[in-house]
Amino acid sequence: MSLRLRNGSKIAGAVLIVVLLVGLIPGVIGCTAEEEFPLHDPLVRFKIATTTSLYDTGLWYHLEPIFEELANVEMDIVYAGTGIALEYGRRGDVDAIIVHDRAREDVFIADGYGINRRNFGYNFFLIAGPPDDPAGITGSTAAEALKKLHDEGVKDADTVKFVSRGDDSGTHAKEKLIWKEAGFDYEDVRNSGEWYVEAGKGMGPTLLMANEMQAYVMADISTFLAYNLKRDLSIEPIVDKDSIFLNVYAAIAINPETHPKAEIDIANQFINWLISDEVQEIIGTYGTAEYGRPLFFPIASCDMPGCPPVEDYTTPVPAYMK
């Protein structure tokens, strides 16, 4: 009898657990339907993958609500390096991509994954390093600077190190391009010693790593400024004047013939909106208040070798016809 009583309280406990767990279910499902899982939202979800530099600087936080209201869509922004963004695009997991690597953009479009490419903004890369510049790259061109870093780094990895993104991002692609211009085979550079550090991380963490190691690093100016403001970096820009440092951002719509589910009409509207005067002005002034200078430039102000031809960004993309 006493056993039964004891069991009685245990049963009550077990029942309570079950009741609480069951009680949670409607709560969870309720949220599923209402706010947390708005899969049946009447609004269309429009998904883009964007390069990290544009995201980390907060530009998309600024632009997202404007486009959402304009197009009456719910915009989902996934941030990823150019390599991953292109992969999302190839798989049709997004409706448009924002990338910065012309060579791979062209392949992406030629392979039938993307259409309606438009450049909409640019800025520059730079090579930052310790202020005392142990490798002596001050005043060099980009290619000369990397060559010096390589030569000095191979000689003495304790004083000269270079941190590479090493993640197939647009920045990494540009770095490889400069190595090529400097007359190096990239695979040789990678394997030339411990002076060459592959971070495998986004721009911000790579900068922080270079800062901790007092190493040289290649970064886009916007991420450098944003990170410098917040973390007070002890490395500083050393080489930043070279036309090869030009960094042009492009928007590409996913080809609906390859991926019929892609929201091509919204993607077209989005791309035309990016090259509109309204957004170009936002891009040209964004960051001025915080950094004393804009982080990006409107594409129309690009007038150096390597800039896209004018008709590349002044022609609105045509409506898609099936």
Binding site: T52, D56, Y61, E64, E74, D76, I77, V78, Y79, K201, G202, M203, G204, P205, L208, A226, Y227, K230, R231
Partner: peptide, 19 residues
């Protein structure tokens, strides 16, 4: 994705990368 799939751990990862 902000406002949709951002959870604490991914937010930590992002904020760290933003500095």
């Amino acid at each position: 994705i902000r406002g949709f799939t951002r959870v604490i751990t991914t937010a930590i990862s992002l904020e760290t990368s933003k500095g």
